[in-house]
Structures are given as C-alpha cells and as structure tokens.
Design a protein around this nucleic acid. Structure first.
Lengths: 208, 208
DNA sequence: TGTACATCAGTGAACGCGCGTTCACTGATGTAC
DNA sequence: TGTACATCAGTGAACGCGCGTTCACTGATGTAC
C-alpha cells in the first residue's frame, strides 16, 4: 500500500552554517507527499524523513512536532499557490484578460498539484488554527480584479458577491472533476466549462 | 484529541435469529464517525465498535476487515443521500419546483451531514474500487429533472452539460462554505447563493 | 412438559507492527590561539 | 601555519502506544426428543 521507504541516494550532509536547507527539503517532501495522497493523514514524520533521505530524528531539529511540520507544509503550499496566482495576475494589463489568466492559473494549479489543492481547500486541515486564516489573501486578489472588471463593464453588482460566485464555481469544477474523474464520458472539457462560467457570470467584455 | 472511547450503556445482546441488527448499528456508528471527522482515516475498527457499545472483535462477525467495513459505510451513506434526493424529487409535480426542491435538499444534506457529504464527494475514498461508481445514480436523477425543465422552457441547451454546471456549482458552494466557514463575514446567505445560481444558469421559469 | 444440546452473538487476552518521540551519540567543519 | 576545541547536522537504538487482527472462550436461547 505505502510506497517503498526509499532511503534515497546517500545525502550529502549540509555544511556548517546551512542546516536550514534541510528544513526546505523537508517541507518540499511533505508537500509532495500530501500531493500524492491528497490527504494530510498519511504524511508521517517517518515518511517525510525517508522522502528527504534523512533519519526521522533529523526532523526534530527543524520542527517541534509532527503537527508543527504539517502546519508548516500547508502554509508552504499556500505560499506556492499565492505565487502562482500573483504571477497570473501580473501577466496581463487588461482587466478581462487578467481575470481570465487567473482563472486558467487556478485550474492549472488544481490540476498539476491536485493533492496540495485538496489539502488546502477541500480536505479541511484537522489541525488547531494558529495564524490568520491563510489563503484569504488570494481571495482578496480576486476581489480586486473583479472590482476592476465590473468597473470596466459599468456593472453595479457587488464585487465580493461576484467573487464568491466565481470562486465557489471554480472550486466545484476542479474539485468534482478531480475526485470523480474516473467517469470520463461525464465531463465536458474543463476549458469549455471555464468559458461558460465567464458567460454565465457575465465577467467578460460586454456584448452589445 | 480523540473523543473518549465511550463504552456506552450496557448493550442488550441481540436475540438469536437477529444478529444482523448489529451490522446496521455498526454502519450507523461508522457513518456517524465519518460525519464527525469528515474523513475516513480516523474511523478505526476499535472506534466504531466502541461507538456501537461492542468489543472490537464483534465487528469481524459482520465484516471481513476494516476496509470492508469502511466500504459498506460509504455505500450506506450514499444510499441515505440518494433517498433524500429521491424524496425531494417526489415532493413536487412542477419541473421547476422539483429542481428547486432537489437543490434545497442537496444543500440541506450537505449542511446536516457534512462529514458524510465530504466522505462521499470531497474526500476521495482511498479504497480500491469495488462496484459500479455509486452515486452516479443521483446524477442521472438530476439530468432527468433538468431535461424536463429545459423542455418546459423551450430551451435547447444540452441537459447533461447544464446538469454538470448545476452540480459543480452546488458542490463548490457547499464544500467551500463548509470548509472555510470560519470566516463569517465572507459568505453570503446560502439561500441567496442558490437563488442566484438559478438565475445565472437560467433554470427557472422564463421571464418574458 | 422437561431436559440435553447445538447454535450463535459477543468477549477478552494477546500478537506483531508502525507510529511519534526521546536520548545519548558521532563525526565533519569552522574558529581561536 | 598548525592544532585543539566548540559547534552543529544528522544518526541509531529504544520507548510506549494504539492499531488491525486472531484465537480460544462464554453463556444465553431456541430446538429436538
């Protein structure tokens, strides 16, 4: 059931001042394990350590506990997601194109990093809350772009409400298509879904 | 972290011919544990047995293994869901009202049985597939009603495509609102979301 | 109607295993003199 | 320039625990005679 422990090729020990490198390697490994399992429950200390080619004990030089490691890995994934979205937002000047680019980046992230996506948005993290609800930053980005789009359209809908509509629908598409993807005839092309979403929610240039 | 084992008030042993009663009680307990945890991973043999007021060994009189128990519990939940949807569908004659009733029943099920909903639609079950992809039956029901609605509207859209739109969006709403519900200011009233979904997807009576 | 017995729901102790975590350690490397 | 030493990245063995599962059992109850 579990993938072989994979002792990894013999790791070279990090030089003196740079022990923090392992921290990043562990976060990478943990996020990747989440990505593979799509769940947080099987990402154990031992599995993460093995994936990083290190003994379980080494984890405790960088994280206080198993829980601490998981939290850090989730936040790490959120950062990656936020960067992807920010990159998409910066890729276009026109508000319509910017919103479209963000939509495509969202779908792509969900497709390419399914496990991470699920851990962030779908599988609720069964960990005690620690910091601010992270990931809301990305939502604020969305609201900002939607505000621009509505202004350009001369549309007086509430940007937050429209943003929630966009987000919920996007999430439904990527989450359901991901988890029930084994029924191939059922699903239309995701890009078609996305295009229809734009039409239905009227967030493209006005047709007159 | 885990709830106290709760040995339950002393169970009365089932009479001779009716040992199958425990089977149902175990399925109830397992589904309820899923509902509480929103995940399948923590629903162990011992926890289910304790919740049913029975020793862990007793489980093996009705299920071959832990996995077997989990599978049966998931299917049990799907049956409950299908019944809820069928009940809603039967509650109205008018196609528009029928679709609306199904939508409300869907949201209500997701709200009242969050954990079960998540196990069914959101948390992919990490179990080997066994029978037909269950739960698709409910989707066929949806397609049937949408077909009626489109016919009544004299609308030539593809019923399956529209059904996928309805389902993905509904799922996104209930899933995101459920998992990120701790941010109260963010979310509009679910009923408002549902009403707007009907407007945007044009699945209500035509306005002329 | 009474009794011996087979049936069957459920128990209790024990197993091997993998988990998170601890503890004392090793050995390469930068630094002080 | 050479050497003693403190630092620090990482190890290995061991712990207690809860898990899924097995095995031999108990004791109430319906049934055959």
């Amino acid at each position: 059931v579990a993938p072989p422990p994979e002792p990894d090729t013999h790791r070279v020990r990090n030089p003196r001042g740079q022990g923090d490198r392992l921290r990043v390697e562990l976060l990478d490994a943990a996020a990747e394990l989440m990505a593979v399992h799509g769940s947080i429950d099987k990402v154990g200390v031992r599995a993460v350590a093995a994936a990083a080619g290190v003994s379980p004990t080494a984890v405790y030089r960088h994280f206080e506990s198993h829980t601490d490691l998981l939290w850090a890995a989730v936040q790490y994934s959120f950062d990656e997601f936020a960067r992807a979205m920010a990159g998409a937002a910066a890729s276009a000047d026109d508000p319509y194109e910017r919103l479209a680019a963000m939509g495509e980046a969202y779908m792509q992230f969900a497709r390419d990093h399914r496990g991470k996506y699920r851990v962030m948005f779908s599988n609720r993290v069964p960990l005690p809350p620690r910091t601010e609800p992270v990931g809301m930053h990305a939502f604020d980005q969305l609201v900002a772009v939607v505000t621009e789009v509505l202004a350009a359209r001369d549309d007086d809908r509430d940007p937050r409400f429209v943003s929630v509509q966009v987000w919920t629908w996007m999430h439904g598409i990527v989450d359901l298509m991901g988890s029930h993807g084994e029924v191939p005839d059922l699903w239309p092309d995701p890009d078609v879904m996305l295009a229809e979403l734009r039409v239905r929610l009227e967030i493209g240039p006005r047709q007159h």
